[in-house]
Structures are given as C-alpha cells and as structure tokens.
Simulated assay, not measured.
Amino acid sequence: MAARDYGQYGGTARALELVGERWALLIVRDLLVGPRRYGELSAGLPRIPTNVLATRLKELQAAGVIRRAPRSRVIIYELTEYGRELEPIVLALGAWGFRALGEPRDDQVITPESMTIDLRSAFQSSAAALLPPTSYSAHVGSADLVLRVDGPALAVDAGSGPADIRFEADAGIRRLITGDVSADAALRAGIVRVIEGDRSLIHRFAETFRIAA
C-alpha cells in the first residue's frame, strides 16, 4: 500500500493512494511501452533516486499493478492485467498535459518512453484509417523511434529502421502536433528536418498525430 492515505472511502481516493505517489505514474508510463529491467527503468527516469524507485516498485507490486518476472536469467518488471487498465488513463492524462507544454528547460530530456506515449496519446486512429499505410523513422531529442501506421493501428518501436520517411526534430515538434504551426511552416522553420524520403509525408504525419491546443 502507498504511504499516502486520504482517509476517504471512494474510487478516486483509492486510485491516488495506489498510483498517486511521485514517480509512480511515470513508472507505469514506461512499462506501458514494454517490460523493463530495474536498470532500464532507472535510465529512463534519470532523476529518480534509487531508493525511491525501489520503494515505488514495491508499492506497485503490492497493489497488483506490476509484477516481477524472470526472463532470460534477469528479472524484469511488467504491468499486470490490472495495471494495463491504466493505459487509457495515462494516454488521456498525457494528451491533457501535452497541451500545457511550454519550451523545455535545459535540464529536461525527451526519452524514448516519454515520446512513445506522447505519440500514442496524439494518434488519431480515425484519420489514420483513411490514409495509406506509412512508416516514419523519427529522431526527436535523444529518442529514436520507428512509427508504423497501418489503418487505425499504430506500432512504435525504439531505434531506427527502414521507413517511408526519415526525419529529425527537437521539442519544437509539439507545435506541429498541437496544430500551432502547419506542416509547411514546420518544414520551413526547421522544426522538422527531413533526412530521407518524401517531404509531403510530414503533412500525413500532422494529420495522424494531433492534440488540439
């Protein structure tokens, strides 16, 4: 059980007791991307103290949100079925918070996990269903991702790989995703820089990934 006790009998209070402690939902966010070893979780959350990470993992295990599992002679952490039920909540919270993003501070980083969830939060499946299948190789901040869109389905993998278009961007890509700038304006301003492929596919990217400001 988490240390915080609100002294209230209700679903919202209980949910916050389970996942409302600092760093808890970010751990869940990263595990929504995929199972992680302890060191991978620590690397993906570079400012979390090791004692806090260990405590949060124990609390989330006790709550039935995550579990430890042996895999290839190492221990990994993964979400339980109960924990996976947090996915739509985390995506909705991410979309809500994305609209309030300003310019990043010098000490803020973009991780592959954070960018994956932001893009999943922004994914417009109904718009994507009307567009041809497209793959994007994106380098955003320090994150390398391959996005594969096939109808209403989205797959995001860390790393680089073959794609219809390869581009790079920094945190300014949020302005394209929120519609603050058009695809043409983002290209002209260098917010998005196409390395390889058809530049017009950035228009398709902007239709497919959108969080209204």
Rank of each mutant, 00 (worst) to 15 (best):
I177V: 15
I177D: 02
I177F: 05
I177P: 03
I177E: 04
T178C: 13
T178F: 07
T178H: 09
G179P: 12
G179W: 08
G179V: 10
D180N: 10
D180R: 14
V181D: 01
V181C: 03
V181K: 03
V181I: 12
S182W: 01
S182A: 04
S182L: 03
S182F: 01
A183K: 10
A183M: 12
D184M: 14
D184W: 07
D184T: 09
A185E: 13
A186W: 00
A186N: 02
A186H: 01
A186S: 06
L187T: 01
L187M: 11
R188H: 05
R188A: 13
A189G: 07
A189L: 15
A189F: 04
G190V: 07
I191T: 03
I191P: 01
I191Y: 00
I191Q: 01
V192N: 02
V192P: 00
V192C: 03
V192L: 04
R193Q: 14
R193M: 12
R193V: 14
V194N: 10
V194Y: 04
V194T: 06
V194P: 11
I195G: 10
I195V: 15
I195H: 09
E196H: 14
E196L: 15
E196W: 09
G197P: 05
G197E: 03
G197Q: 07
D198W: 10
D198H: 09
R199D: 07
R199T: 05
R199G: 00
S200R: 15
S200M: 13
S200N: 12
S200Y: 03
L201Q: 04
L201I: 04
L201D: 00
L201E: 02
I202Y: 08
I202N: 09
H203C: 05
H203M: 10
H203A: 13
H203N: 13
R204D: 06
R204M: 08
R204H: 03
R204Q: 14
F205D: 04
A206W: 04
